[in-house]
Design a protein around this nucleic acid. Structure first.
Lengths: 129, 129
DNA sequence: CAGTATCCGACATGATACTG
DNA sequence: CAGTATCATGTCGGATACTG
């Protein structure tokens, strides 16, 4: 019995993309990375620069990025305590790729918005044969 | 009274990145895009190729991508019904940027895994001064 | 075949209060 | 200043059943 060719499963590298996105694709990670790319910052400095982030989420996001080796944390034992965050070399190399995606977003967001507007207006663009 | 310089808020383009990620950064969108990049497919064909996706999530993901103008849907009124999905030109251009990110992921995922392993082993890598 | 409808649990996020 | 702890809520996603 002849069986048709094996299913065209996705290659492992495609899975890597989605794994990466599940790491940095949350609501705040990219914003934190882009902020740290501009300059290393202290905790409350980040909180001020990233509009709308809660203290809790900033802490969690930084911990995750630190765990992934993308951000380095430096504690200075003074009073008041001082904690500085900066991108690691790994984090810096990631930000380059993220910025590339940002370039696409900046060039095409109007097309996306337009497509959504059409969709929401009820003009579904699919084809019926 | 002299006030310090305006807060270093993120530039609008950075926000665009996070907006894009909130669109395609969900669990399945990128997987669907990468699958359609290889070849246009029918509904159940996609379901077979994308391991683990539920019927519900495939439907929702396709609707969102269609709404964003990234995917085109073609209905053939036959019995049984036939529906084909393919990337639009916009979707194709996005996939290039996504693949760039995938390249980074493929090159560096070992470093990330290693960093996580260190963290989980309790060796927090931060610096104390 | 290609969906829709419904229910439900898990997780992500926000708000708030407290601490070394 | 830089967190941690706790609670409340909303959304995401899976399972299941039904339909043109």
């Amino acid at each position: 019995m002849v069986v048709t060719a094996p299913a065209n499963k996705l290659s492992p590298s495609c899975r890597k993309i989605s794994q990466l996105l599940s790491r940095i694709g949350d609501k705040w990670s990219v914003l934190v990375i882009m902020t740290l790319l501009r300059k290393p910052s202290r905790f409350n400095e980040l909180k001020r620069d990233i509009d709308g982030i809660s203290q809790r989420m900033l802490t969690l996001t930084l911990r995750n990025l630190e765990r992934d080796g993308l951000v380095k944390r430096t504690v200075t034992a003074s009073i008041p305590p001082r904690v500085d965050y900066e991108l690691t070399k790994l984090g810096g190399s990631l930000s380059a790729s993220v910025q590339a995606l940002g370039g696409w977003a900046f060039e095409h967001f109007e097309e996306i918005d337009a497509a959504q507007a059409r969709w929401d207006a009820g003009e579904r663009a699919d084809v019926r044969v």
